[in-house]
Simulated scan of single mutants.
Amino acid sequence: MAAVTKSKTKSGDSFFEIVKTVVTVGLVVLILRTFAFEPFNIPSGSMIPTLLIGDYVFVSKYSYGFSRYSFPLIHPPFSGRIFGRLPARGDVVVFKLPRDPSVDYIKRVIGLPGDKIQMVDGVLNVNGKPVELSRTEDFYDTEYQRNIETPQFIETLPEGRQHPILKLQKPGTGTYDNTPVFEVPADSIFAMGDNRDNSLDSRVPPRNNGVGFVPLENLVGRAEFRFFSYDDNVAPWWQVWEWPWAIRFSRMFTGVH
């Protein structure tokens, strides 16, 4: 009878296979995060009610082409965009803060190159015309303003796209309810938060810790959908036993509009 022996894998070969697998997975993830989708979490309330604190969104990296800011780890030394496309008015976008490119911001595109944007008594004006605002039900959430109902409106942009906004202050009394006319440069966009009285955005110049105009080069991508949402006010992340009550299941796998 012929003897049968088990083949033994050398420890060196085994280690090499592990390293190869880790490197391969790392490269695949890097490629996906650079050219397809990258996850971001929402740490602040400037985009309430569209995005809540604790939402996690996937951002499409290919929507507007690619720039040096498309790369998640390093910023290669080239300028402009490859396969560049303009965002649509109303898109929710992630971009690198112009005064500090190490910081990611998420806002809504309100003005495109050449547009004239102004706030008049709390109403957005695009190219000299006020947008339509219609009152809807108050927004209520325990994580924001602690049980205060906040006036909510539906804003209709010139192309017909609609989205909700919050207005804490009486229209015309907020800090940025009346502004000069902002003429958007040819290589930039004008971005605003949906939480109009609690958003440092393009209405606020960089010298005042705001955003100012956002160069097209700084665009990272378009927010597509929420894949997770967690209310840290219900339970800190480390309280695993409380997760079922803290996870906002109704917001998971829903589109960002």
Rank of each mutant, 00 (worst) to 15 (best):
K129L: 05
L124F: 04
N127T: 05
S134R: 13
P130I: 04
G128V: 06
S134Y: 08
N125D: 10
N147L: 10
R135E: 15
K116A: 08
Y140M: 12
S134E: 14
I117F: 06
N147A: 12
E137V: 15
E137Q: 15
T142C: 11
D141C: 05
V126E: 04
N125H: 14
E143G: 10
K116W: 02
N147I: 07
V123W: 00
T142D: 06
V131L: 06
T136L: 11
K116L: 01
V120L: 06
L133R: 13
N127F: 08
V131E: 01
D141Q: 13
Y140V: 08
T136H: 11
F139R: 00
V120Q: 06
G128H: 08
V120T: 08
R135C: 04
S134T: 14
Q145V: 10
D141P: 08
F139K: 01
D138H: 13
G122H: 02
V120S: 03
T142F: 02
V120W: 01
Q145D: 12
N125W: 06
Q145L: 14
D138N: 13
L124R: 02
E132I: 10
N125Q: 15
I117E: 00
K129Q: 11
N127Q: 07
G128D: 10
D141K: 12
N125A: 14
D138A: 13
E143T: 14
L133W: 07
L124C: 08
E143Y: 13
V126R: 09
V126A: 12
S134I: 09
G128T: 09
N127V: 08
Q118D: 10
R135L: 10
V126F: 04
G128M: 04
E132R: 13
S134M: 13
L133F: 11
